[in-house]
Amino acid sequence: MIPIKKGFEADIDYNYQRMYVSGMMQLISHMLKAGSQVDDVIKTEVAEMPDGFVFRMNVMPGELSLTMQKQQGALVNLTNYTDKPDLTMSFKHVTFAFLVFSFQEHTAQAYANERLIIDGDVPTSMKVVRCLNRLQTVILPKVVAKKAVKTYPDLEFIQKIQMTTKTYSQFLVNLVKER
């Protein structure tokens, strides 16, 4: 059972937030890889990123992070990348990452609320944000996705189901291949 702190507002223990954020980062990096292989919107955004482009999303001081690179037209996960990425999106604290990954606050609002620092090439950072928004729109139920993104796009139910199925299927295929 997850312990809830009592106080000004009920909150989840930082250790559980860290575990949740770590898991979500793993999931998002794998889903983004799958999305960049099968989703036309994400594929178009990735196509306009420079080859070899590396972006990282992390939680300061850096123990939690996901790093991805554009390779052969799609995004792949990097596990031991030590150079400075072309783009870094850093949450100032694990609890701010938790707010975003638990869909209480979308990425743009986190940036507006000074919880997230974006450092790097601005035009490409906008493409990455759009990829993340599209991914959340596709893989989450609409009621959750509407909280996770600033503007929920016009997406018919049938289209959404098709894209959700394709993305999750590719995610599973990738998991099997990587084993």
Partner: peptide
């Protein structure tokens, strides 16, 4: 314009 950083804090994400 879609790739301009100012779009991030506009109330609506424009297509």
């Amino acid at each position: 314009a879609l790739d301009d950083g100012s779009m991030l804090l506009n109330p609506i994400d424009a297509t």
